[in-house]
Amino acid sequence: MKRLLIVDDELAIVEALQDILSVEGYDIVTAFNGAEGLQRLADGKPDLVLLDLMMPVMDGREMLRRMRDDPSLRGIPVVVMSAGRISDEERRSSARFLAKPFELDVLLDTIAELLVEPQPTA
């Protein structure tokens, strides 16, 4: 079972995503700001992170920067979710971007695409 980390300060969004993604067969871990998100990463690496940008304590931009600066976290796929804009530098960080509000099928397709296991070559 693939583990997803949802990092968002809006409880309603976290609960909705947790319910939907659990039904889809994902193991869900949650955090409500970037500092909590980094702690969850230290507790055990997820297969993918869903990350809001605008949060208190530590925003998503700082969490993403710290993830990309840490070789042990750099390879974890990140889907940035935000109602705001992202910079060109953030786009180059290898994170995917979904503008809020997003369509559920687009989110599920993005997650599935990022979690595809590489096929062994013969």
Rank of each mutant, 00 (worst) to 15 (best):
F97Q: 01
R65W: 02
E117V: 12
D59Q: 07
S82V: 05
E113N: 13
S94V: 06
D43A: 15
F97N: 00
P120C: 06
I20R: 09
M67N: 01
V29S: 10
G75M: 03
M63E: 00
A122S: 15
E10P: 09
V7I: 05
R74W: 04
L53G: 07
R91W: 00
L21G: 01
S94T: 11
G44K: 09
F97W: 06
E62M: 12
K45H: 05
R61S: 07
D27E: 15
S72H: 06
V49C: 00
N33I: 05
V79T: 01
S22N: 11
D59R: 02
V29K: 12
D70G: 00
M55L: 13
M81H: 05
F32M: 15
I76Q: 02
A122T: 14
L73M: 03
N33G: 09
D109R: 13
R65E: 11
K100W: 01
R74N: 10
V23D: 14
L114D: 05
E10V: 14
E117K: 13
E103K: 13
R66A: 08
A122P: 15
L115Y: 07
D19C: 12
L108F: 06
R61E: 08
E117I: 10
A12H: 13
V80G: 05
F102M: 09
V79K: 03
E89Y: 00
T30I: 13
L41P: 01
P71W: 00
P77V: 10
I76R: 03
A31R: 06
R91Y: 01
L21R: 05
A12I: 14
N33M: 10
L51S: 05
I20Q: 09
T121H: 11
L107F: 07
E10L: 11
M58Y: 09
A31F: 05
V116I: 12
I13G: 04
G25F: 11
L11C: 11
A16S: 15
L53D: 02
R85C: 10
V79F: 03
P120K: 04
S87R: 04
L21N: 07
L21M: 06
A12V: 13
L48I: 06
P101C: 04
P120L: 08
M54W: 08
P118Q: 11
K2Q: 11
G37T: 08
I111T: 00
E24I: 10
D105Y: 14
P118R: 12
R40I: 07
R92D: 05
E24W: 02
L11N: 13
G60S: 06
R92Q: 12
S22T: 13
D70N: 14
T121M: 06
V57S: 12
F97D: 03
E89H: 01
V29L: 12
E36Q: 15
D19F: 12
I28Q: 05
L98S: 06
F32G: 10
P120H: 02
A42V: 09
L115K: 09
L48P: 03
V106P: 03
L64P: 02
A31N: 10
L51N: 06
L4Q: 05
R96M: 06
D27M: 13
E10A: 14
I111H: 02
L51T: 01
Q39W: 01
R68Y: 02
V78I: 04
D59E: 09
